[in-house]
Design a protein around this nucleic acid. Structure first.
Length: 349
DNA sequence: AAACCGGGGCA
DNA sequence: TGCCCAGGTTT
Protein backbone atom coordinates (compact mmCIF):
# COMPACT_ATOMS: atom_id res chain seq x y z
CA UNK A 1 0.00 0.00 0.00
CA UNK A 2 1.21 3.46 -0.85
CA UNK A 3 2.80 5.68 1.78
CA UNK A 4 0.01 8.25 1.60
CA UNK A 5 -2.71 5.62 1.89
CA UNK A 6 -1.15 4.05 4.95
CA UNK A 7 -0.67 7.41 6.62
CA UNK A 8 -4.25 8.43 5.95
CA UNK A 9 -5.62 5.13 7.13
CA UNK A 10 -3.60 5.33 10.31
CA UNK A 11 -4.89 8.86 10.89
CA UNK A 12 -8.55 7.95 10.55
CA UNK A 13 -8.10 5.35 13.26
CA UNK A 14 -5.82 7.21 15.63
CA UNK A 15 -6.42 10.94 15.34
CA UNK A 16 -6.96 13.08 18.39
CA UNK A 17 -10.13 15.06 18.78
CA UNK A 18 -8.89 18.62 18.34
CA UNK A 19 -11.19 21.65 18.01
CA UNK A 20 -9.47 23.29 15.03
CA UNK A 21 -10.11 20.17 12.99
CA UNK A 22 -13.85 20.72 13.18
CA UNK A 23 -13.90 23.93 11.19
CA UNK A 24 -13.03 25.29 7.77
CA UNK A 25 -13.15 28.90 8.97
CA UNK A 26 -9.78 30.30 7.87
CA UNK A 27 -9.73 32.74 10.78
CA UNK A 28 -10.10 29.95 13.32
CA UNK A 29 -7.51 27.84 11.53
CA UNK A 30 -5.14 30.81 11.38
CA UNK A 31 -5.62 31.33 15.11
CA UNK A 32 -4.75 27.73 15.83
CA UNK A 33 -1.78 27.61 13.47
CA UNK A 34 -0.10 30.72 14.83
CA UNK A 35 -0.58 29.52 18.39
CA UNK A 36 0.82 26.10 17.52
CA UNK A 37 4.02 27.40 15.90
CA UNK A 38 6.86 25.78 17.83
CA UNK A 39 4.30 24.93 20.49
CA UNK A 40 2.96 21.59 21.62
CA UNK A 41 -0.72 20.89 21.12
CA UNK A 42 -1.29 20.37 24.84
CA UNK A 43 0.33 23.70 25.63
CA UNK A 44 -1.45 25.67 22.91
CA UNK A 45 -4.92 24.21 23.34
CA UNK A 46 -6.08 26.30 26.34
CA UNK A 47 -4.75 29.45 24.65
CA UNK A 48 -6.68 28.60 21.50
CA UNK A 49 -9.90 28.24 23.48
CA UNK A 50 -9.37 31.47 25.36
CA UNK A 51 -8.56 33.44 22.21
CA UNK A 52 -11.56 32.07 20.35
CA UNK A 53 -13.82 32.95 23.22
CA UNK A 54 -12.41 36.47 23.47
CA UNK A 55 -12.36 37.03 19.71
CA UNK A 56 -14.90 34.84 17.88
CA UNK A 57 -14.22 36.60 14.58
CA UNK A 58 -11.29 38.39 12.98
CA UNK A 59 -13.22 41.63 13.42
CA UNK A 60 -13.34 41.08 17.16
CA UNK A 61 -9.61 40.45 17.13
CA UNK A 62 -9.00 43.60 15.11
CA UNK A 63 -10.81 45.67 17.73
CA UNK A 64 -8.58 44.45 20.56
CA UNK A 65 -5.69 46.41 22.01
CA UNK A 66 -2.15 45.11 21.94
CA UNK A 67 -2.15 44.99 25.71
CA UNK A 68 -5.24 42.78 25.73
CA UNK A 69 -3.76 40.44 23.14
CA UNK A 70 -0.46 40.14 24.96
CA UNK A 71 -2.25 39.54 28.24
CA UNK A 72 -4.05 36.60 26.65
CA UNK A 73 -0.78 35.46 25.11
CA UNK A 74 1.14 35.66 28.37
CA UNK A 75 3.12 32.54 29.16
CA UNK A 76 3.10 31.15 25.65
CA UNK A 77 6.41 32.61 24.47
CA UNK A 78 7.47 34.05 21.12
CA UNK A 79 5.40 37.14 21.82
CA UNK A 80 5.90 38.65 18.38
CA UNK A 81 3.36 36.07 17.23
CA UNK A 82 0.71 37.87 19.23
CA UNK A 83 1.72 41.29 17.98
CA UNK A 84 1.79 40.07 14.38
CA UNK A 85 -1.66 38.56 14.79
CA UNK A 86 -3.15 41.86 15.86
CA UNK A 87 -1.45 43.65 12.96
CA UNK A 88 -2.78 41.04 10.54
CA UNK A 89 -6.29 41.04 12.03
CA UNK A 90 -6.51 44.81 11.62
CA UNK A 91 -5.14 44.57 8.09
CA UNK A 92 -7.76 41.99 7.15
CA UNK A 93 -10.49 44.06 8.73
CA UNK A 94 -9.47 47.14 6.75
CA UNK A 95 -8.20 45.83 3.43
CA UNK A 96 -10.11 42.57 3.07
CA UNK A 97 -13.36 43.82 4.64
CA UNK A 98 -13.00 41.29 7.42
CA UNK A 99 -12.91 38.35 5.02
CA UNK A 100 -10.00 36.09 5.81
CA UNK A 101 -8.16 34.94 2.66
CA UNK A 102 -7.76 31.23 1.94
CA UNK A 103 -5.37 31.26 -1.03
CA UNK A 104 -1.75 30.37 -0.32
CA UNK A 105 -0.47 33.29 -2.42
CA UNK A 106 -2.46 35.78 -0.36
CA UNK A 107 -1.83 34.13 3.00
CA UNK A 108 1.92 34.08 2.53
CA UNK A 109 1.87 37.88 2.37
CA UNK A 110 0.46 38.20 5.89
CA UNK A 111 2.76 39.11 8.75
CA UNK A 112 3.62 36.06 10.84
CA UNK A 113 2.50 33.64 8.11
CA UNK A 114 5.30 31.68 6.48
CA UNK A 115 5.36 28.76 4.09
CA UNK A 116 4.11 26.22 6.58
CA UNK A 117 1.22 28.30 7.92
CA UNK A 118 0.08 29.43 4.47
CA UNK A 119 0.04 25.81 3.32
CA UNK A 120 -1.84 24.75 6.43
CA UNK A 121 -4.57 27.37 6.20
CA UNK A 122 -5.06 27.06 2.44
CA UNK A 123 -5.30 23.29 2.57
CA UNK A 124 -7.43 23.00 5.70
CA UNK A 125 -9.83 25.79 4.77
CA UNK A 126 -10.08 25.30 1.02
CA UNK A 127 -8.25 22.09 0.10
CA UNK A 128 -5.60 23.92 -1.88
CA UNK A 129 -2.91 21.48 -2.96
CA UNK A 130 -0.09 22.73 -0.78
CA UNK A 131 1.90 20.35 1.45
CA UNK A 132 2.64 21.31 5.03
CA UNK A 133 6.27 20.77 5.92
CA UNK A 134 6.72 21.17 9.64
CA UNK A 135 8.94 19.42 12.14
CA UNK A 136 6.72 16.34 12.04
CA UNK A 137 6.79 16.07 8.26
CA UNK A 138 10.56 16.51 8.10
CA UNK A 139 10.95 13.63 10.52
CA UNK A 140 8.47 11.26 8.86
CA UNK A 141 9.81 11.82 5.35
CA UNK A 142 13.42 11.66 6.45
CA UNK A 143 12.92 8.34 8.17
CA UNK A 144 10.58 6.64 5.74
CA UNK A 145 12.45 7.67 2.58
CA UNK A 146 15.91 7.65 4.14
CA UNK A 147 16.86 11.25 3.39
CA UNK A 148 19.89 12.36 5.35
CA UNK A 149 20.20 15.90 4.05
CA UNK A 150 20.12 18.14 7.14
CA UNK A 151 16.59 19.43 7.62
CA UNK A 152 17.80 22.85 8.72
CA UNK A 153 19.98 23.43 5.66
CA UNK A 154 18.84 25.34 2.60
CA UNK A 155 19.34 22.26 0.44
CA UNK A 156 17.40 20.11 2.88
CA UNK A 157 14.42 22.43 3.00
CA UNK A 158 14.26 22.45 -0.80
CA UNK A 159 14.58 18.69 -1.05
CA UNK A 160 11.91 17.90 1.53
CA UNK A 161 9.52 20.45 0.07
CA UNK A 162 9.97 18.97 -3.39
CA UNK A 163 9.24 15.48 -2.10
CA UNK A 164 6.23 16.73 -0.15
CA UNK A 165 4.92 18.39 -3.31
CA UNK A 166 5.07 15.08 -5.16
CA UNK A 167 3.45 13.10 -2.38
CA UNK A 168 0.40 15.32 -2.04
CA UNK A 169 -0.61 14.92 -5.69
CA UNK A 170 -3.83 12.91 -5.90
CA UNK A 171 -4.51 13.19 -2.18
CA UNK A 172 -7.18 15.18 -0.38
CA UNK A 173 -4.90 17.98 0.84
CA UNK A 174 -6.69 18.72 4.12
CA UNK A 175 -6.86 15.06 5.07
CA UNK A 176 -3.37 14.09 4.00
CA UNK A 177 -1.73 17.14 5.60
CA UNK A 178 -3.47 16.53 8.92
CA UNK A 179 -2.62 12.86 8.71
CA UNK A 180 1.12 13.16 8.16
CA UNK A 181 1.51 15.70 10.94
CA UNK A 182 -0.52 13.66 13.39
CA UNK A 183 1.43 10.57 12.41
CA UNK A 184 4.68 12.40 13.14
CA UNK A 185 3.42 13.76 16.43
CA UNK A 186 2.00 10.54 17.85
CA UNK A 187 3.59 7.59 16.05
CA UNK A 188 6.85 8.69 14.44
CA UNK A 189 7.94 10.67 17.49
CA UNK A 190 11.40 12.26 17.81
CA UNK A 191 12.32 10.04 20.74
CA UNK A 192 11.23 6.46 21.22
CA UNK A 193 8.96 6.27 18.18
CA UNK A 194 6.47 3.40 18.16
CA UNK A 195 8.16 1.44 15.38
CA UNK A 196 7.07 -1.99 16.59
CA UNK A 197 3.41 -1.15 16.05
CA UNK A 198 3.96 1.11 13.02
CA UNK A 199 1.95 0.25 9.89
CA UNK A 200 4.83 1.52 7.77
CA UNK A 201 7.62 -0.40 9.46
CA UNK A 202 8.09 -2.90 6.64
CA UNK A 203 8.87 -0.20 4.09
CA UNK A 204 10.46 2.41 6.36
CA UNK A 205 14.10 3.05 5.35
CA UNK A 206 15.15 4.07 8.84
CA UNK A 207 13.50 1.05 10.40
CA UNK A 208 15.02 -1.40 7.90
CA UNK A 209 18.49 0.09 8.25
CA UNK A 210 18.42 0.71 11.97
CA UNK A 211 18.70 4.47 11.49
CA UNK A 212 15.61 5.54 13.39
CA UNK A 213 17.74 7.27 15.99
CA UNK A 214 19.92 8.91 13.32
CA UNK A 215 17.26 10.42 11.08
CA UNK A 216 16.39 13.18 10.60
CA UNK A 217 19.84 14.77 10.47
CA UNK A 218 20.13 18.28 11.81
CA UNK A 219 23.11 20.55 11.30
CA UNK A 220 24.80 21.45 14.53
CA UNK A 221 24.54 25.14 15.13
CA UNK A 222 27.43 25.35 17.50
CA UNK A 223 26.69 28.20 19.80
CA UNK A 224 30.01 29.94 20.29
CA UNK A 225 30.72 31.30 23.70
CA UNK A 226 32.50 34.64 23.83
CA UNK A 227 34.98 35.07 26.64
CA UNK A 228 37.41 37.74 27.76
CA UNK A 229 40.72 36.66 29.21
CA UNK A 230 42.96 39.19 30.92
CA UNK A 231 46.44 37.73 31.37
CA UNK A 232 49.00 39.22 33.73
CA UNK A 233 52.60 38.89 32.73
CA UNK A 234 55.11 39.04 35.56
CA UNK A 235 58.79 38.77 34.72
CA UNK A 236 62.20 39.42 36.18
CA UNK A 237 65.53 39.18 34.43
CA UNK A 238 65.27 35.52 33.49
CA UNK A 239 62.02 34.23 35.01
CA UNK A 240 58.30 34.41 34.34
CA UNK A 241 55.30 33.66 36.49
CA UNK A 242 53.18 30.88 35.03
CA UNK A 243 50.01 29.13 36.00
CA UNK A 244 48.97 25.54 35.45
CA UNK A 245 45.41 25.21 34.15
CA UNK A 246 43.25 22.82 36.09
CA UNK A 247 40.28 20.69 35.20
CA UNK A 248 36.86 22.03 34.27
CA UNK A 249 37.81 24.31 31.41
CA UNK A 250 39.75 24.47 28.18
CA UNK A 251 43.48 23.79 28.03
CA UNK A 252 43.59 21.45 31.02
CA UNK A 253 47.11 20.76 32.31
CA UNK A 254 48.56 23.36 29.99
CA UNK A 255 50.41 26.40 31.29
CA UNK A 256 49.43 30.03 30.88
CA UNK A 257 49.63 33.13 33.12
CA UNK A 258 47.68 34.43 36.10
CA UNK A 259 44.30 35.17 34.62
CA UNK A 260 41.28 37.34 35.32
CA UNK A 261 38.29 36.43 33.19
CA UNK A 262 35.75 39.21 32.81
CA UNK A 263 32.20 39.21 31.44
CA UNK A 264 33.03 42.05 29.05
CA UNK A 265 36.00 43.49 27.31
CA UNK A 266 37.96 46.14 29.12
CA UNK A 267 39.03 48.51 26.37
CA UNK A 268 40.77 50.69 28.88
CA UNK A 269 41.63 50.01 32.45
CA UNK A 270 38.42 50.78 34.25
CA UNK A 271 37.92 51.26 37.96
CA UNK A 272 35.99 48.07 38.56
CA UNK A 273 38.52 46.02 36.69
CA UNK A 274 41.41 47.66 38.52
CA UNK A 275 39.89 46.96 41.92
CA UNK A 276 39.55 43.30 41.01
CA UNK A 277 43.18 43.20 39.99
CA UNK A 278 44.25 44.87 43.24
CA UNK A 279 42.27 42.40 45.30
CA UNK A 280 44.25 39.62 43.68
CA UNK A 281 47.70 41.18 43.48
CA UNK A 282 47.74 43.82 46.23
CA UNK A 283 46.81 47.49 46.42
CA UNK A 284 50.15 48.74 45.17
CA UNK A 285 50.23 46.72 41.98
CA UNK A 286 50.29 48.48 38.62
CA UNK A 287 49.30 47.18 35.22
CA UNK A 288 50.12 48.27 31.70
CA UNK A 289 48.35 46.87 28.66
CA UNK A 290 50.44 44.84 26.27
CA UNK A 291 49.06 43.23 23.17
CA UNK A 292 45.55 42.09 22.45
CA UNK A 293 44.57 38.94 20.55
CA UNK A 294 41.42 37.32 19.27
CA UNK A 295 41.64 33.58 19.68
CA UNK A 296 39.21 31.33 17.82
CA UNK A 297 38.27 27.87 19.03
CA UNK A 298 35.62 25.59 17.61
CA UNK A 299 33.17 26.44 20.34
CA UNK A 300 34.55 29.62 21.86
CA UNK A 301 35.81 33.03 20.80
CA UNK A 302 38.30 34.35 23.29
CA UNK A 303 39.46 37.94 23.40
CA UNK A 304 42.82 37.89 25.09
CA UNK A 305 44.34 41.00 26.65
CA UNK A 306 47.86 40.79 28.06
CA UNK A 307 48.98 43.13 30.81
CA UNK A 308 52.39 43.75 32.30
CA UNK A 309 52.06 43.52 36.07
CA UNK A 310 54.42 45.20 38.59
CA UNK A 311 54.64 45.78 42.36
CA UNK A 312 52.45 42.75 42.93
CA UNK A 313 51.95 40.46 45.88
CA UNK A 314 51.35 36.81 45.07
CA UNK A 315 49.99 34.44 47.66
CA UNK A 316 51.59 31.22 46.53
CA UNK A 317 49.91 29.27 49.32
CA UNK A 318 46.49 30.05 47.94
CA UNK A 319 47.55 29.58 44.34
CA UNK A 320 49.40 26.33 44.32
CA UNK A 321 49.23 26.20 40.55
CA UNK A 322 51.23 29.40 40.20
CA UNK A 323 55.00 29.23 40.09
CA UNK A 324 58.15 30.93 38.83
CA UNK A 325 59.96 29.30 35.94
CA UNK A 326 62.84 30.42 33.76
CA UNK A 327 62.05 31.35 30.17
CA UNK A 328 63.84 28.22 29.01
CA UNK A 329 61.82 26.06 31.37
CA UNK A 330 58.62 27.70 30.17
CA UNK A 331 59.55 26.78 26.60
CA UNK A 332 59.50 23.14 27.62
CA UNK A 333 56.09 23.32 29.26
CA UNK A 334 52.92 22.62 27.32
CA UNK A 335 51.17 25.89 26.42
CA UNK A 336 48.05 27.03 24.60
CA UNK A 337 48.90 28.45 21.21
CA UNK A 338 47.85 31.95 22.18
CA UNK A 339 50.49 31.88 24.91
CA UNK A 340 53.19 30.54 22.62
CA UNK A 341 52.42 33.25 20.10
CA UNK A 342 52.60 35.89 22.79
CA UNK A 343 55.94 34.61 24.08
CA UNK A 344 57.54 34.63 20.66
CA UNK A 345 56.58 38.26 20.08
CA UNK A 346 57.41 39.15 23.68
CA UNK A 347 60.92 37.75 23.53
CA UNK A 348 61.65 39.82 20.43
CA UNK A 349 60.82 43.02 22.29
C1' DA B 1 23.40 31.47 6.28
C1' DA B 2 22.94 32.55 10.95
C1' DA B 3 20.83 34.96 14.92
C1' DC B 4 16.95 35.65 17.44
C1' DC B 5 12.67 34.83 19.56
C1' DG B 6 10.38 31.43 24.90
C1' DG B 7 8.23 28.39 27.64
C1' DG B 8 7.64 23.58 28.67
C1' DG B 9 8.05 18.42 28.29
C1' DC B 10 10.98 14.60 28.10
C1' DA B 11 14.98 11.26 28.15
C1' DT C 1 21.66 19.15 29.96
C1' DG C 2 20.19 18.87 25.17
C1' DC C 3 16.60 18.28 22.03
C1' DC C 4 12.25 19.36 20.23
C1' DC C 5 7.77 21.47 19.68
C1' DA C 6 1.66 22.34 13.81
C1' DG C 7 8.07 28.41 12.43
C1' DG C 8 8.90 33.10 11.07
C1' DT C 9 11.51 37.38 10.84
C1' DT C 10 15.58 39.96 10.78
C1' DT C 11 20.38 40.85 9.78
Amino acid sequence: MAFQTEITKWYLHNKRDLPWRKTTDPYVIWLSEIILQQTRVEQGLPYFNRFLEAYPTVSDFANATEEQVLKLWQGLGYYSRGRNMLFTARQIQEKYKGIFPVKYDELILLKGVGDYTAAAISSFAADEVKPVVDGNVFRVLSRYFGIDTPINSTEGKKKFLALANELIIGEVPSLYNQAIMEFGAMQCKPKSPLCSICPLQADCFARRNNLVNVLPVKEKKLKKRTRYFNYFVCTNSDQILVKRRTAGDIWQELYDFPLLETPDQYHNIQEEFLSQVKSSFGNDCTIAPLEQKKHLLTHQTIYVQFFALDNYIINFNQNAEIKWVTFDEFDELPQPKVITNFMSSYSVN
